[in-house]
């Protein structure tokens, strides 16, 4: 290092201009909260990959049932229990898309040729000859719909409850917190099961059952944040200026809560998907011909030994959704949670 310094000619040095007005200049553009968060998320490769996969799955949930050219309810008993076969991929022997099934004697047979079926069922068919490709994506659509709706309702109730409880404090807070303390003592899935027994399975009743105590977690997080935020000067200023409680909550507190709300909701969605699948698996899910990922796994599990693809395909889809949503939620938490900031 020392040698290099000696080699630089003196002419290249010039005195720095000291201008006090320039010291105040901001060189980098100021980032909004969201730009900053996006920068952080973008650095997290797993989160970005998850975001893309989640996007693809949601896209498939909508266009999947359309591109197969088949209906998710039409039964064709002559075509029942066909293994998956895909054009082009059927000639690659190590891929499981060649329409070949191993029979009980351990011999491989091409069921399509045996039964003279010209059609291609990309994910195979179920016991009633319904196209599984259409059913899987239709099921994904319904599972996601239930999960998003449940997460949204959880969010609305939880935020309102937590914000009111934390903001007003005192006696109101005390009573509201005692109520949540009782609710949190109830095992989630047990109460959901009881609600389903009462309401009978259906898309709306499943959603309601999932939200019955699901909002408690959100309300606790929001309350904790509001307790901190309401002591801030800007809230005091707003109050001094005569703004109503409602306006303070909506205009000043809510924008500051967006981070925790998003993080919590992102974790609620995979939980709701899991709970729906869980209910289907113990026989409390949607009724035929409606399908969700849970009911498909349940049906597939019953014939797992004979036709493994009927369970494995929906299982892969639900696992992908769960993994990617969890990773995305982790990434968002790292990016949005003020506690995580250095």
């Amino acid at each position: 290092m020392g040698q290099h310094e000696k080699n630089i000619p003196k002419e290249r040095f010039s005195p720095a201009v000291i201008d006090s007005s320039k010291g105040e200049e901001i060189n980098k553009p100021s980032l909004s909260f969201w730009q900053d968060a996006w920068l952080r998320v973008r650095k997290n490769k797993a989160a970005i990959a998850s975001l893309i996969i989640v996007g693809l799955v949601i896209l498939m949930a909508f266009i999947g049932p359309l591109i197969s050219g088949k209906d998710h309810q039409t039964q064709k008993v002559a075509h029942n229990n066909l293994p998956p076969r895909v054009q082009g991929l059927e000639n690659i022997s190590w891929l499981p898309f060649d329409g070949v099934k191993v029979n009980k004697a351990g011999k491989e047979i091409n069921v399509y040729e045996q039964r003279n079926v010209d059609e291609y069922y990309w994910f195979g068919t179920d016991a009633l000859g319904r196209d599984l490709f259409t059913r899987v994506w239709k099921g994904t659509q319904i599972s996601l719909y239930i999960a998003f709706l449940a997460a949204f309702i959880d969010m609305v109730i939880g935020v309102a409850y937590g914000a009111i409880s934390g903001y007003f404090g005192g006696r109101i807070d005390n009573i509201m917190q005692r109520i949540t303390e009782v609710l949190i003592g109830i095992p989630f899935l047990v109460v959901v099961i009881l609600m389903i027994l009462l309401l009978k399975p259906g898309i709306i009743s499943l959603t309601i059952a999932l939200t019955i105590t699901g909002w408690v977690g959100m309300s606790r997080v929001v309350r904790a944040q509001v307790l901190k935020l309401k002591e801030q000067e800007y809230v005091l200023a707003s109050r001094t200026l005569g703004n109503s409680h409602f306006k303070i909550m909506i205009k000043h507190l809510l924008p500051n809560l967006v981070g925790v709300i998003i993080i919590n909701t992102m974790f609620t969605i995979p939980n709701a998907i899991f709970s729906e699948a869980f209910l289907s698996f113990i026989g409390l899910g949607l009724q035929d011909p409606l399908a969700s990922l849970g009911t498909l796994i349940d049906e597939g599990f019953k014939v797992l030994r004979l036709h493994p693809y009927q369970m494995i395909i929906p299982a892969v889809v639900i696992s992908t959704i769960m993994v990617t949503f969890n990773m995305l939620a982790d990434g968002l938490r790292d990016a949005l949670d003020p506690k995580m900031r250095d």
Partner: peptide, 17 residues
């Protein structure tokens, strides 16, 4: 991540199979 995400009944079913 996988252990937290994969539903236990899916994992159990595949394990059993």
């Amino acid at each position: 991540v996988v252990g937290k995400s994969i539903p236990s009944f899916v994992f159990a079913g595949l394990l059993q199979y």
